[in-house]
C-alpha cells in the first residue's frame, strides 16, 4: 500500500467517524498510533532525547487529533493535517523540556509503517494519574470508558445519569486531560 493509499484510507475512516461511525473512527486511531509512535521515536532519537517520553507525546497527539478534528475538511489531504498536529505536539513537548531553540521545526520525515510495539504502549507519565487528577464525574467516566472499557450506556446506568450527560462529561474530561498533558510533569 502506498502512502497515498494509506492516507486515502485514513481520510475515509475520518469522514465515516465524523458521521458517527465509531468502528471506522477506532480503526483510524488504531492505525495512527503506530505511525505517530514511529515518527515521535525517530524525532527524539535524532535530537538525542531519551524516548521514555515517546508514548506520552503519542497520546497527547492522539488527543489533539481527536479534539481538533473539526479543523480538518474532507477536501484537504489528511496527511499534512496529521503531520502538522504531530509536529506541533512534539515541538511543544520538547520545548517544555527546556530544549527551546534546538528543535528543528521541519524535516520530521514521512510516516513509516511497522513501528508498532504494543509492549511499550504505556505512557511514562502514567496517564492514570492524570485521569485521577481529573477527579469527580469526568474522571470516573473517562476511567470507566477508557481503562475499564465500559460502554457509554453501562456507564450511564452505573452512575445514574442519562447517556447525553455522560457523553458531555466524557468530552469535557478529554479536553481537561489534553490540558493536563501540557502541564509540567
Amino acid at each position: 500500500m502506498t502512502a497515498d493509499d494509506r492516507e486515502r484510507q485514513w481520510a475515509d475512516w475520518m469522514v465515516a467517524g465524523l458521521g458517527g461511525d465509531e468502528a471506522a473512527y477506532r480503526r483510524l486511531l488504531t492505525a495512527l498510533a503506530p505511525a505517530l509512535r514511529g515518527k515521535v521515536r525517530r524525532a527524539l532519537a535524532r535530537w538525542g532525547v531519551p524516548d521514555a517520553d515517546a508514548e506520552d507525546i503519542v497520546q497527547d497527539a492522539l488527543l489533539a487529533i481527536h479534539l481538533k478534528r473539526h479543523t480538518w475538511r474532507r477536501e484537504d489531504a489528511i496527511g499534512p493535517w496529521i503531520e502538522a498536529i504531530a509536529r506541533y505536539k512534539l515541538v511543544d513537548a520538547l520545548r517544555r523540556r527546556g530544549r527551546r531553540g534546538e528543535v528543528p521545526i521541519d524535516g520530521l520525515g514521512d510516516f513509516l509503517p511497522g513501528d508498532d510495539d504494543p509492549a511499550e504502549n504505556l505512557g511514562r507519565r502514567d496517564a492514570e494519574r492524570l485521569v485521577d487528577r481529573l477527579g469527580g464525574t469526568q474522571g470516573r467516566i473517562v476511567r470507566a470508558v477508557a481503562v475499564e472499557g465500559t460502554s457509554i450506556r453501562d456507564t450511564a446506568q452505573s452512575l445514574g445519569m442519562n447517556e447525553g450527560a455522560v457523553r458531555v462529561a466524557l468530552h469535557r474530561g478529554l479536553k481537561t486531560l489534553s490540558k493536563l498533558y501540557r502541564v509540567e510533569p
Binding site: 467517524g17 465524523l18 458517527g20 465509531e22 473512527y25 477506532r26 486511531l29 488504531t30 498510533a33 508514548e55 503519542v58 497520546q59 492522539l62 488527543l63 481527536h66 478534528r69 473539526h70 479543523t71 475538511r73 504494543p118 504502549n121 504505556l122 505512557g123 502514567d126 496517564a127 492514570e128 492524570l130 485521569v131 473517562v142 470508558v145 477508557a146 481503562v147 472499557g149 460502554s151 457509554i152 457523553r167 458531555v168 466524557l170 468530552h171 478529554l174
Partner: peptide, 21 residues
C-alpha cells in the same frame, strides 16, 4: 493508561465542534 485504552475513550466521544469558518 495504555494508548489502546485512550483510543477507546476517544472513539466513544462523538462530540465534534463547529469548523473554523
Amino acid at each position: 493508561m495504555r494508548t489502546d485504552d485512550l483510543i477507546s475513550a476517544l472513539a466513544a466521544d462523538h462530540a465534534v465542534e463547529p469548523g473554523p469558518r
